[in-house]
């Protein structure tokens, strides 16, 4: 699936992350701003790419502003932004998320 419109999820509160998904052709690109960039930057970028792959995203820009969120929150915000972009609200494939 390719990103056609933009979508946003999450907040800038402590322990949360705000994720935007935007059209970007060619590949999945991750842009990260993080309060813990030095320590977890590479890890978060890998997590975002992995999540995108699971969701079947072929291209798009994932912009993350991270405020020290745990993995489960970062993943959740990316998935929320993704489903907001696709408009799917029911019958999510929970077993693979």
């Amino acid at each position: 699936m390719k990103v056609t419109t933009q979508a946003i999820a999450g907040t800038l509160e402590s322990s949360d992350a705000q994720v935007m998904i935007l059209p970007h052709s060619g590949s999945v690109k991750v842009e990260l701003t993080s309060s813990v960039f030095d320590q977890y930057g590479d890890h978060i970028i890998a997590l975002a790419k992995d999540t995108a792959k699971t969701l079947g995203l072929e291209d798009g820009l994932i912009k993350i502003v991270d405020k020290g969120a745990l993995d489960c929150t970062i993943k959740a915000r990316i998935e929320t932004a993704f489903y907001r972009m696709t408009g799917q609200t029911a019958d999510l494939p929970w077993e693979v998320l």
Binding site: D38, Q39, Y40, H43, L70
Partner: peptide, 11 residues
């Protein structure tokens, strides 16, 4: 377990 292991700072 909860935070993940942090990488040593670059600077």
């Amino acid at each position: 377990q909860y935070a993940g292991k942090a990488k040593a700072s670059r600077i």
